[in-house]
Simulated scan of single mutants.
Amino acid sequence: MRVIALGTLSGATGDREKGEDFVVDAKLGADLVARGLVELAPETAPATDKPAKTKE
């Protein structure tokens, strides 16, 4: 689960600064969200390795 710190965090997740995004397991992420320490990071579309075809 990708989350964004809402403040400075220190502990099981390591040292995190406000606004930093990081990955945690689902259980820890849900606990941190419930406690108001992080918010879910927006999902991003997976990047494609193929370049887009251009019309000539």
Results as ranks from 00 to 15, higher is better:
residue 35 R to F: 11
residue 12 A to R: 15
residue 56 E to Y: 11
residue 23 V to C: 09
residue 32 L to S: 01
residue 13 T to N: 12
residue 17 E to T: 14
residue 56 E to G: 15
residue 6 L to A: 01
residue 43 E to Q: 09
residue 37 L to K: 04
residue 5 A to S: 01
residue 8 T to A: 09
residue 24 V to Y: 02
residue 36 G to I: 06
residue 54 T to S: 11
residue 31 D to A: 15
residue 37 L to Y: 12
residue 31 D to I: 12
residue 30 A to D: 11
residue 43 E to F: 06
residue 22 F to P: 06
residue 3 V to P: 05
residue 51 P to K: 09
residue 51 P to N: 03
residue 54 T to V: 10
residue 49 D to Y: 03
residue 5 A to Y: 00
residue 44 T to R: 07
residue 39 E to L: 03
residue 48 T to V: 07
residue 4 I to H: 06
residue 45 A to I: 05
residue 22 F to K: 01
residue 4 I to P: 06
residue 5 A to L: 03
residue 30 A to H: 10
residue 54 T to H: 09
residue 31 D to H: 12
residue 56 E to C: 08
residue 56 E to Q: 12
residue 29 G to Y: 00
residue 8 T to G: 10
residue 9 L to G: 04
residue 55 K to C: 03
residue 36 G to N: 06
residue 46 P to I: 02
residue 50 K to Y: 12
residue 46 P to A: 08
residue 51 P to F: 04
residue 32 L to T: 06
residue 17 E to M: 12
residue 26 A to D: 13
residue 4 I to G: 02
residue 56 E to H: 11
residue 11 G to I: 01
residue 45 A to C: 08
residue 42 P to A: 14
residue 41 A to K: 05
residue 18 K to P: 15
residue 30 A to W: 02
residue 47 A to E: 01
residue 50 K to F: 09
residue 22 F to C: 01
residue 36 G to S: 12
residue 29 G to L: 10
residue 38 V to D: 00
residue 25 D to R: 07
residue 39 E to N: 02
residue 15 D to M: 14
residue 23 V to F: 13
residue 32 L to H: 00
residue 51 P to H: 04
residue 25 D to M: 05
residue 23 V to S: 14
residue 10 S to A: 14
residue 56 E to M: 10
residue 38 V to G: 04
residue 17 E to H: 13
residue 50 K to Q: 05
residue 50 K to W: 12
residue 39 E to M: 06
residue 3 V to H: 00
residue 27 K to Q: 13
residue 28 L to Y: 05
residue 12 A to Y: 08
residue 53 K to Y: 07
residue 21 D to N: 13
residue 21 D to W: 13
residue 49 D to P: 04
residue 8 T to R: 14
residue 2 R to L: 10
residue 53 K to V: 11
residue 20 E to M: 07
residue 7 G to W: 05
residue 48 T to Y: 02
residue 43 E to H: 04
residue 10 S to N: 11
residue 37 L to S: 03
residue 38 V to Y: 03
residue 49 D to F: 08
residue 34 A to I: 10
residue 45 A to M: 08
residue 40 L to I: 09
residue 6 L to V: 07
residue 37 L to G: 06
residue 9 L to I: 11
residue 46 P to H: 06
residue 54 T to A: 12
residue 6 L to Q: 00
residue 18 K to W: 10
residue 32 L to C: 01
residue 36 G to A: 02
residue 38 V to L: 01
residue 37 L to W: 10
residue 10 S to C: 10
residue 24 V to K: 01
